[in-house]
């Protein structure tokens, strides 16, 4: 199979979907000739024209709303939010409009929209360019939230997202852009709403998504050397969440550690743990553990940022705590 960058897998998918379906258009800041802040759409304006690859003013609320309106009436827009941090400016349109149209207007309403969000820390960009804000979106019924961890899944999930008739928030870890992985050429999809067991194990379940999946696999590898066997689950879709795949694993291992790049309070981990406790309380041999970022803004300085954001070491420590607990 062919190896390619996570970022190139996304570029290829966008190009394939634009070629496949005329209704797919793109909106965002500097996405035309410039190719976007992370160069994902380099060459698109030339290939597909600036009617379909539209540079917008710096108006996230406005252009997200425009995309929602276009989605409601026949187009399938893909919005690039230059940094996920800026999605805050579009939350009214997403939460009060996109997420509710189907429920309130009924079957006539569909919002086939994708909002692509480069997210996460690790580049010393500081408090307004490093956040993982998925918690705010997962808490809104009507929004699909997807966060791939590999180039393969990025392509397959993005295809599914573009073909989905619901609004999808598509989270792209900025650090993962530079990772390579096996990606089939041509068309394939990865289903939305399905988690994946990415490593089999017996002693503890580690639940992760996006960049924390690779940190979890690293932790599992290190623990294997100490004869601790971890099962690692990549959630892939955060909403609607695939509780069953997680529960099945926890029923087997009896322990669970959940990890994410966003802060601890009110995070994805809280939701996963609540579901695990509800669905497999009797199987748990130890209290569930959450490994998340500090409850602070993301600091810029490298030493502080490293202290704020979890890594394989903290995940491994949480697994050990869980095993020692019972």
């Amino acid at each position: 199979m062919r190896e390619t960058y996570f970022s190139h897998a996304i570029r290829e998918t966008l190009a394939e979907e634009m070629a496949r379906d005329e209704r797919v258009i793109m909106l965002g800041e500097d996405i035309a000739e410039y190719g976007g802040a992370f160069k994902i759409t380099a060459g698109f304006a030339e290939r597909f024209g600036k009617e379909r690859v539209r540079n917008t003013p710096i108006a996230e609320g406005g252009f997200t709303g425009v995309a929602i309106g276009a989605a409601l009436t026949g187009l399938r827009p893909v919005v690039e939010m230059m940094f996920m941090d800026f999605i805050t400016l579009a939350l009214d349109q997403l939460i009060n409009h996109a997420a509710k149209f189907r429920y309130q207007y009924g079957e006539q309403a569909r919002v086939p929209l994708v909002v692509r969000c480069p997210a996460g820390a690790g580049r010393s960009y500081g408090p307004t360019h490093s956040q993982s804000l998925e918690r705010h979106l997962v808490a809104t019924p009507g929004l699909v939230v997807v966060a791939p961890s590999t180039a393969h899944d990025a392509k397959g999930l993005l295809k599914s997202a573009i073909r989905c008739d619901d609004p999808v928030i598509f989270i792209e870890s900025k650090v993962l852009y530079g990772r390579r992985g096996d990606v089939p050429e041509g068309d394939y999809t990865v289903p939305l709403g399905e988690a994946k067991v990415v490593r089999d194990g017996e002693d503890c379940t580690i639940v992760a998504y996006s960049r924390m999946t690779e940190e979890s696999l690293r932790a599992a590898e290190a623990l294997a050397a100490k004869s601790v066997s971890c099962e690692v689950i990549d959630l892939r879709t955060l909403a609607p969440m695939d509780t069953e795949t997680v529960a099945e694993s926890v029923r087997k291992t009896g322990r669970v550690v959940v990890t994410e790049e966003g802060p601890l309070t009110g995070g994805i981990g809280a939701e996963v743990v609540a579901r695990v406790v509800e669905s497999c309380f009797d199987y748990l041999q130890a209290p569930p553990q959450r490994v998340a970022a500090s409850d602070t803004p993301v600091p810029a300085s490298r030493v502080l940022e490293e202290a704020a954001i979890p890594s394989a070491r903290q995940i491994a420590e949480a697994v050990v705590r869980s095993i020692r607990a019972g």
């Binding site: 010393s124 960009y125 500081g126 408090p127 307004t128 360019h129 803004p297 600091p299 810029a300 300085s301 490298r302 030493v303 502080l304």
Partner: peptide, 15 residues
């Protein structure tokens, strides 16, 4: 990104 910076290293150029 140093402690003696105006934001103690927390903000960087933009904050």
């Amino acid at each position: 990104g140093k402690a003696t910076g105006y934001a103690g290293g927390r903000g960087g150029s933009q904050h």
